[in-house]
Simulated assay, not measured.
Amino acid sequence: MNKKAVSIIVADDHPIMLKGLTEELENAGYTIVATANNGAAAVEMIALHKPKIAMLDIEMPFFNGFEVIKNCSNLELDTKFIVMTYHKEKGFIVQAKKVGTHGYLLKEDNLEEIEACIEAVLFDEFYFSSSFQEDIKHTVDNELRKVALLTPSERTIIRLIAQGKNSAEICETLKVSKRTIEKHRANIIGKLELEPSQDTLTQWANDYKEIIKSL
């Protein structure tokens, strides 16, 4: 791979992280065409430079990394998006795949891992940090498949469950009967392939809050 031909934009609101990663990539031979310290600037730079790779911190001012990717989705770019974060929660990983992220790295990963990710995404492969166990990769695809089966009403209910509301509170919010809510709960549990109990649905909602926010 001709590293010099790989144009990269790096976005991170932490100056030390931004400087360190930029210098590391430049020293490795990649071409850094721009940097950004917030999500809005990242979108502007990506639209302007159309880099082959955009490396994004998830948590940034104005737009987070996922919102940057969403905002760039209608620009008809060939840019591959890699997010870098400290988050290992499954919900973040599912959300990353849902918005069209190509790579998911942890900020603790070394240059060798970063380069492996860059090479993989350039060949249209989705790349997880090797810090994740193999079963996480299967979990991500499974959860995306199952969530897609939920109806609009079921998605509304799972959002309310994620907010900590019980059945009675959901009934009051949606102005429907408890029987209706319990029927929806049962359908959701079935589609998500969970054990048939209220606690398992609540736990699932807590585990996947990030993807629920996007429903």
Results as ranks from 00 to 15, higher is better:
residue 147 V to D: 03
residue 113 E to T: 15
residue 180 T to D: 11
residue 101 T to K: 06
residue 144 L to C: 01
residue 150 L to Q: 13
residue 82 I to W: 13
residue 120 A to S: 11
residue 93 I to F: 14
residue 176 V to T: 14
residue 86 Y to E: 04
residue 147 V to S: 07
residue 90 K to H: 13
residue 129 S to P: 11
residue 120 A to R: 05
residue 163 Q to A: 12
residue 90 K to D: 15
residue 112 E to R: 06
residue 185 R to K: 15
residue 188 I to A: 08
residue 115 E to H: 03
residue 96 A to P: 07
residue 132 F to Y: 15
residue 153 S to I: 12
residue 138 H to N: 05
residue 131 S to R: 14
residue 102 H to D: 13
residue 163 Q to P: 00
residue 179 R to A: 13
residue 189 I to E: 11
residue 185 R to S: 05
residue 183 K to A: 15
residue 111 L to I: 10
residue 185 R to W: 11
residue 181 I to F: 12
residue 145 R to M: 08
residue 118 I to Q: 06
residue 86 Y to D: 06
residue 174 L to I: 04
residue 134 E to P: 00
residue 132 F to W: 11
residue 154 E to F: 05
residue 130 S to V: 06
residue 178 K to A: 11
residue 175 K to I: 08
residue 169 E to W: 09
residue 179 R to H: 07
residue 184 H to N: 10
residue 164 G to L: 03
residue 101 T to D: 03
residue 119 E to D: 09
residue 162 A to Y: 07
residue 146 K to C: 04
residue 123 F to M: 06
residue 117 C to P: 06
residue 145 R to Y: 10
residue 151 T to N: 03
residue 109 D to W: 12
residue 164 G to H: 03
residue 178 K to M: 08
residue 98 K to L: 02
residue 176 V to W: 08
residue 87 H to S: 07
residue 112 E to Y: 02
residue 108 E to A: 15
residue 102 H to I: 02
residue 168 A to W: 10
residue 105 L to C: 13
residue 178 K to I: 08
residue 148 A to E: 11
residue 163 Q to E: 14
residue 137 K to R: 13
residue 110 N to F: 07
residue 142 N to M: 05
residue 92 F to G: 05
residue 169 E to M: 14
residue 190 G to R: 14
residue 139 T to H: 12
residue 173 T to G: 00
residue 151 T to C: 03
residue 147 V to C: 09
residue 111 L to C: 01
residue 101 T to W: 04
residue 146 K to D: 04
residue 173 T to E: 15
residue 97 K to T: 00
residue 108 E to M: 13
residue 190 G to C: 01
residue 107 K to A: 05
residue 118 I to A: 06
residue 129 S to D: 10
residue 179 R to P: 00
residue 146 K to M: 06
residue 165 K to T: 03
residue 108 E to N: 12
residue 122 L to Y: 10
residue 142 N to C: 01
residue 186 A to K: 14
residue 141 D to R: 02
residue 81 F to K: 09
residue 181 I to T: 09
